[in-house]
């Protein structure tokens, strides 16, 4: 644990000079995401530690290798939380990897994703230049938003060295309701309830049950609960359910299976995404688990499993592909940072 910025900077400068591909790794919990790549290991786990945390400012700044589990514990001491509820993958996931892979939990539709809480970050580009973008304040529109651009970039535009994140207070009360519903009925119910101003922080459908999580002040939660009806889930069972949703543990593909992710409008009909196994984000995210397939499911991301040398994120238009290649070049002219992790052509 400590500040390894100088070593990281030197490693990238050397890789730039020698055009050596680098493979960035934090807690090594996301190796199954993105495309399979090779390269010299760039280990971030030891570049860790909280740089600053001010509970009254609602901002925490930590080095990229800092574990999500550590941040969760630190924030909990002050009755605060990460708004985007990222998975901690058995305590090993790091905040840098979470930002790079854009990992968000069940509260996404109501409390936003990684980008909505991300205030700033440190980045070393493919030239080996150490840079800072954004900051620790809530509103900042100076310069291009290089900070949020990194969300989902899978480390292909730079090595994230530290991140500043807006945090929120813990909920004072909460519980989960369940409803015995088909996928079709659940989609309809979720659409209806999302339209009301209710303290909902999660709506998922799994194995014939719709789970609705209410969180907020005790009075607000109680009145919403009465309004919605349903069965109240025991608090331990609710905790286990939402943890499984967050950690993705309901749908772990076996070696001969593929997990597909669909993302779209929440009013999309059930039969548009056949064989849905799990619905999250009030219908805006759906998961399909299949046996190994010869042809990819159209419009879905090959999230885990299957051929990891394929274009797992699908195809994009030719002009946008060319633009993304120019952006990649603007950050990493020799293509040394996680080359090919996002797309074969990047």
């Amino acid at each position: 644990m400590g500040d390894l910025t100088v070593q990281l900077e030197q490693q990238i400068q050397h890789a730039y000079a020698t055009k050596t591909p680098l493979k960035i790794r934090g807690g090594n919990t996301k190796a199954s995401l993105g495309r399979e790549t090779s390269g010299e290991a760039m280990d971030m786990a030891d570049h860790s530690g909280v740089i600053s945390y001010s509970a009254t400012e609602l901002v925490v700044r930590a080095r990229a290798g800092t574990k999500i589990s550590l941040l969760n514990d630190l924030l909990a001491e002050q009755h605060q939380r990460l708004p985007f509820e990222p998975p901690s993958f058995a305590g090993e996931a790091t905040i840098g990897g979470t930002v790079a892979a854009n990992q968000t939990g069940a509260s996404r539709p109501w409390f936003g994703g990684v980008k909505d809480s991300l205030l700033g970050l440190g980045l070393i580009n493919g030239y080996g230049e150490v840079m800072q973008f954004g900051g620790q304040v809530m509103k900042n529109v100076a310069g291009f938003d290089v900070t949020r651009l990194q969300c989902g970039a899978m480390g292909s535009l730079g090595l994230i060295t530290d991140v500043s994140i807006k945090v929120l207070p813990e909920f004072k009360a909460g519980h989960t309701l369940t409803f015995d519903m088909t996928i079709e009925a659940a989609l309809e119910a979720m659409l209806k309830w999302a339209n009301l101003s209710l303290p909902i922080t999660g709506m998922s459908h799994f194995k014939g049950l719709l789970y609705v999580r209410l969180q907020g002040g005790a009075g607000g939660v109680a009145s919403a609960s009465t309004f919605l009806g349903g069965e109240k889930l025991a608090s331990k069972a609710a905790e286990i359910f939402w943890q499984a949703i967050r950690e993705g543990s309901f749908l772990q593909p076996r070696h001969d299976q593929t997990l597909w992710r669909w993302s779209g409008a929440s009013d999309t009909l059930a039969n548009t995404v056949p064989n849905t196994s799990l619905i999250n984000w009030a219908g805006a995210e759906r998961w399909v688990l299949t046996e190994a397939l010869d042809t990819p499911l159209e419009g879905l991301v090959q999230y885990q499993g299957g051929d990891r040398l394929a274009e797992v994120y699908g195809a994009i238009s030719a002009p946008q592909q060319a633009l993304q290649q120019r952006i990649k070049h603007a950050f990493d002219p020799h293509g040394i940072l996680n080359a090919g992790r996002l797309y074969a052509w990047m």
Binding site: N102, T104, R108, P109, G113, K115, V141, F144, D145, V146, R148, L149, Q150, C151, G152, A153, S156, L157, W262, S263, G264, A265, T268, W281, A284, E285, V301, Y313, G314, I316, S317, P319, Q320, L323, Q324, I327, L342, Y343
Partner: peptide, 23 residues
């Protein structure tokens, strides 16, 4: 013509939509 972002909440890949905002 280029479309950035999507009908869903988080599309795969770098966040070009956020880059456009405030540019």
């Amino acid at each position: 013509i280029m479309t950035l972002g999507g009908a869903g909440l988080d599309e795969p890949g770098m966040d070009l939509l956020s880059l456009m905002v405030g540019s």
